[in-house]
């Protein structure tokens, strides 16, 4: 129980990123190398766009072993414009990649609630990948 038992407040700053092809705004959110390469793996090098992803997480958590959070993505979920996946990254965790959620055809509202571990106060990042063929 070395890493996760800090009974301290967890200030979770919120950073929500959105991946959209055709939007030229690369590397707008510089993070550590590990996080950068994680995001790169998710996006496949596609540019990131801020917004449309809402990450609801308490600003102060009693216990880093279990922090509830919710990610809501603003997407019509039509065949031409839908969320393919949502990824959670906690940069200061020993393994920053927390989880990835994939949506197939037949998935409903692009929303996920879960409980995560956080090792210390940190910002949590949510990245959503959307298929958006009608983007101009």
């Amino acid at each position: 129980m070395k890493i996760f038992l800090h009974r301290r407040g967890f200030i979770a700053r919120i950073a929500a990123l959105m991946v959209l092809p055709f939007v030229a705004q690369r590397r707008a959110f510089a993070q550590s190398e590990a996080v950068d390469s994680l995001i790169e793996k998710i996006t496949g090098g596609a540019p990131l766009q801020r917004g449309r992803v809402k990450l609801e997480i308490p600003t102060l958590a009693d216990n880093g072993n279990s922090v509830s959070l919710r990610v809501v993505v603003d997407s019509p979920m039509t065949p031409s414009n839908h969320v393919k996946s949502i990824h959670l990254i906690a940069p200061k965790n020993p393994r920053p990649g927390v989880a990835s959620f994939f949506y197939g055809a037949g998935a409903g509202r692009p929303q996920i609630s879960t409980r995560i571990r956080l090792s210390g106060s940190q910002g949590v990042i949510a990245v959503a990948v959307s298929a958006c063929w009608d983007a101009s």
Binding site: N65, L88, V98, G104, A105, G106, T114, R117
Partner: peptide, 14 residues
């Protein structure tokens, strides 16, 4: 038909 899949690591709570 697979509609949802979660791939999780140690960052998910017990």
């Amino acid at each position: 038909v697979e509609v949802f899949r979660a791939e999780m690591g140690s960052g998910i709570s017990a």
